[in-house]
Simulated scan of single mutants.
Amino acid sequence: MMQQQSAIVRTYRRIERAIVPVLVLAGWEIFSRSGVLPPALLPAPSQVLRAWADWVFATDGNTQTYSGTWILDTLASAGRVFAGFAIAGALGVALGMAIGWSRSVEKLIEPVLQVLRPIPPVSWIPLAIIWFGIADKPAIFLVFLGAFFPILLSTIHGVKTCDRNLLRAGAMVGGSPGKLLRHIVFPAALPSIFSGLRIAIGSAWMLTVTAEMVAVKSGVGYVLWDSYYFLRYDLVIAAMASIGLLGYLSDFAIRLSMARVLHWQRGSTISGREG
């Protein structure tokens, strides 16, 4: 009896993540086929899947010019995301460490950053097009803007919340400011930095799609906007699902890196829970 119960529990744990998505898709399919709305306005999941399959594998040509172009569109968007994200990560961490560590740097730079931070990145689109033209650069610039501030603020928070007793102990054994930053402050700030990176990668995907709708003529966002003009809402939803999938995979990659880099934190967390 106990073995049967444990087998049921194991089976449930394997499928529990899929329960809600399956119910949502089933309800969506039933509602789309009920005729409450025209099928063209709310395509059923099966219709979206058919368009998505042709976009990826060129199965039957129903997406016309986009048939079989998903890989190229995805690579175009991913290149812009990771270029802007990498620049934002390098600059955000470096500047955040400096602001969190030095009061003089904080007084000098933070007022300007606090004025710029509330400005929505999308409001920079006209200037980005004027400065960089219709190409990859305005999209990379917008991605940078969207990713920079979450990384910056998370890094500042991580530095400022570093245990002061560790700093005192490091200074007592002759640690220079550079060594304290490198060996104590930066490792202590890493959990906050990774939290900022996870927030930033989601913003990066949102901003690159927005830029592709306006300032770029390729990528997943451009396919989404172009499909809207031609009333191909099945392809619009397929593009939305692609963005969600790519964002999830990007976040998953950051979580894998975080688990590898912060393996010491995972162990302490587990022991704390057990206690």
Rank of each mutant, 00 (worst) to 15 (best):
F144Q: 01
L145I: 13
W225R: 09
T63A: 10
E110C: 09
R17D: 11
A259R: 15
Q64V: 09
A44M: 02
S6G: 09
G244W: 06
A147G: 04
L142C: 01
G35N: 02
L167N: 05
S176M: 01
W205H: 02
I87S: 11
G272P: 02
V112G: 12
M1G: 03
T65R: 13
M2G: 12
G202T: 00
L127Y: 10
L180E: 03
L72N: 12
P43I: 07
V261A: 07
W264F: 10
G244Y: 04
S46A: 11
A211P: 00
G170F: 02
Y12F: 15
A76M: 03
A98N: 07
P21R: 00
R232I: 05
W124A: 09
G89L: 08
K179W: 08
S227Q: 03
R182H: 13
S203H: 12
V173R: 12
D163N: 15
M1N: 04
L75P: 06
L23M: 11
T74E: 11
V22Q: 02
P45C: 03
F141K: 01
A94R: 01
D73N: 15
Q265F: 02
P21H: 00
G272S: 11
G247K: 02
L108S: 15
F149D: 05
A189Q: 03
M97D: 03
E29P: 08
